[in-house]
Amino acid sequence: MGKYFAVGSITNALKGRDILSGKGIHSYIERTPQGMPGGGCGYSIYVPGDFQTAEKVLDSAGLTGGRKEGNRR
């Protein structure tokens, strides 16, 4: 099980992915799953591994938003 981080725009998603990658955390960019906060549409970063660390990294980068644990679709 991993975690989805809804970050809004594709720009935020790509930025977040690059920051996580720089910290050695692998992630995927996906459309935000329905039911997550964010106002509909937009992108999420899915972290299959150490999502606790990923959360701290994304928080410190200001990439906050809806979060949801689950398996990658």
Partner: peptide, 15 residues
Amino acid sequence: GTQSALSSQPVTMPD
């Protein structure tokens, strides 16, 4: 492509 359910424009750059 973001926050499409809202009628107001997103406040985040660059969208």
